[in-house]
């Protein structure tokens, strides 16, 4: 088991309960849609799963170890095995495609020779071959998200979290990106994707976790549940 949550809950300081009593498990190689209306707690769950935030109750076990008890070193190791993609891409706007992707390797202190070889390879994988020197702001939304995906997968993570990755994109571009995510999953990366796009969920016959008002209301394989 890759990830397991036990009675997971998150209550913010302002009193809002974002999640309560979430019990779920994610296995290696799975592709999971996390669905629900806006404010249902999808983003919160993702943030808890990649340890951007800590739970206020319950536990998250990652490969059997509690996420709360991880040492700094373990957190670093966990993050190096985790990729994350957001709705708003979160790229460094002034930089080129190459710099944005290479940054993920620099940050984990890979040697320069390796960075030069690996960046073009991953760009080819996400369909941006030869676009290294372009400024990211000159790219379309779909292309920018591909840069973000390249950055997230260049360290070959075991699991990739995507929080509404197609939220800002038109339907056609969204479907193209979904194909890319599917390929990444088929190559062995576990994928957890938060989305409220019914079309996308229905188009792929995957496991769907449905959240409503911070609670997990269904966990089934197939299309949109709400």
């Amino acid at each position: 088991m890759l990830i397991q949550t036990i009675s997971l809950g998150k209550k913010y300081k302002n009193g809002i309960v974002a999640l309560s009593d979430i019990n779920l498990s994610i296995d290696y190689g799975e592709f999971i849609f996390l669905t629900g209306e806006s404010g249902a707690g999808k983003s919160t769950l993702i943030r808890l799963l990649f340890r951007e935030e800590l739970p206020s109750s319950g536990q998250i076990l990652i490969s059997g170890r509690s996420s709360i008890r991880l040492s700094k070193k373990d957190i670093v190791r966990l993050r190096r095995n985790t990729g994350v993609v957001f709705q708003d891409f979160r790229l460094m706007e002034r930089n080129t495609v190459f710099d944005n992707v290479a940054f993920a390797l620099k940050a984990v202190e890979r040697p320069w020779d390796e960075i030069k070889k690996r960046v073009p390879r991953v760009l080819e994988r996400v369909g941006l071959a030869g676009r290294e020197q372009e400024n990211v702001m000159h790219l379309s939304g779909g292309e920018q998200q591909r840069v973000a995906i390249a950055r997230a997968i260049i360290n070959n993570p075991i699991i990739l979290f995507a929080d509404e990755p197609t939220g800002d994109l038109d339907p056609r571009t969204s479907m193209e990106l979904m194909q890319l995510f599917n390929e990444i999953n088929e190559q062995g990366t576990t994928l957890v994707m938060a989305t409220h796009d019914k079309t996308i969920v229905d188009a792929f016959n995957k496991r769907v976790l449905t959240l409503s008002a911070g609670r997990l209301i269904s966990d089934s394989v197939g299309g949109w549940q709400l």
Binding site: F50, E52, K72, V76, R77, L78, R79, R80, N81, T82, V84, R90, M92, F103, A104, A107, V108, E109, R151, A152, N155
Partner: peptide
């Protein structure tokens, strides 16, 4: 800020 966030996500160390 954004770079620091990205660094954290991809597993940069505190020192880095």
């Amino acid at each position: 800020k954004k770079e620091i966030m990205v660094m954290k996500w991809v597993g940069a160390t505190n020192a880095f």
